[in-house]
């Protein structure tokens, strides 16, 4: 049996006394694309932050390839795990190339804050996100979608085998959403990267993920291949949504078609 890429082992997570998960255990297998889904506020980002050691569990451990992340230096983790947070700050007066170059930080040393290899990796990351023509533009002048792709390029330049993406498709139009998710699959196929992401679009999640984890009320509601997870029963519990699940004619993956509620139940009685 191969060692899991990431394990959250009986972790308790929360913010300022407000607990989101208690004793949660989740394993991520290497070389897979896993997507966390669930209603707003169910803890998708919380779990992702814990995997990315942005949030320290109050109990339990997070292991990266078997080693507790707390025992690794910040830089050692960064060479093996990259994370795209949900709301990064946009720096002033910075070109796309300079921004993406910052992804090379964990590979650089004090006397060599730059190398030809860094430049090559950056160019590659920029090319694979389709940003080559915009490489010398100021990030302040980019559209929302372009900026999002620049962030993804930064994470790709980090060249880590495990990549965590918090809502990588926000701000993107449908074709760019598809582009990003295809890119994710490509990286996974080409480099065997392990990818964990948070997505909101269930059909896209089903279409591009090997595994879906549905989070609900402080625990895992369903976990497995798309067809095992995306069922009307799970959707009803996790989202309070009545929906049909049918096979997507293009991909053969589950496609979620929401139903209109019957008129007399239109206003939820709360």
């Amino acid at each position: 049996m191969t060692m899991p890429a990431l394990v959250a082992d009986r972790v308790t997570l929360g913010y300022d006394g407000h607990v989101v998960f208690t004793g949660l255990t989740v394993q991520i297998e290497p070389g897979t694309v896993t997507t966390l889904i669930g209603a707003n506020g169910c803890g998708k980002s919380t779990l992702l932050k814990a995997f990315g050691r942005l949030l320290a569990p109050s109990s339990g451990v997070v292991r990266l390839e078997g080693t507790p992340v707390r025992q690794l230096s910040a830089r050692a983790v960064a060479r093996r795990l990259a994370i795209l947070p949900q709301k990064p700050l946009t720096p002033a007066a910075t070109t796309v190339r300079d921004l993406v170059m910052r992804g090379r930080h964990p590979h650089q040393t004090l006397l060599r804050p730059w190398s030809a290899e860094d430049a090559a990796k950056v160019a590659e990351a920029i090319a694979s996100t389709g940003m080559t023509e915009l490489a010398d533009r100021d990030v302040g002048s980019l559209s929302g979608g372009q900026l999002q792709r620049a962030w993804i390029a930064l994470v790709l330049a980090q060249d880590a085998p495990v990549i965590l993406l918090d809502e990588p498709t926000t701000f993107l139009d449908l074709s760019h959403q598809l582009e990003v998710l295809r890119l994710v699959r490509q990286i996974n196929a080409r480099q065997g990267s392990t990818i964990v992401m948070v997505l909101h679009d269930l059909s896209l999640a089903a279409r591009y993920s090997d595994r879906l984890i549905v989070l609900h009320e402080g625990g895992v509601l369903a976990d497995g291949a798309p067809w095992d997870v995306i069922t009307p029963a799970v959707l009803a519990t996790a989202f309070g949504l009545e929906a049909l699940v049918m096979a997507d004619p293009a991909s053969g993956r589950p496609l979620v078609v929401p139903l209109e509620p019957a008129p007399d139940t239109a206003v939820p009685a709360i």
Partner: peptide, 13 residues
Amino acid sequence: QLGDDFSTGLGVA
């Protein structure tokens, strides 16, 4: 300049 989360992700203590 990218925020604390991104810095941590990129290996800054």
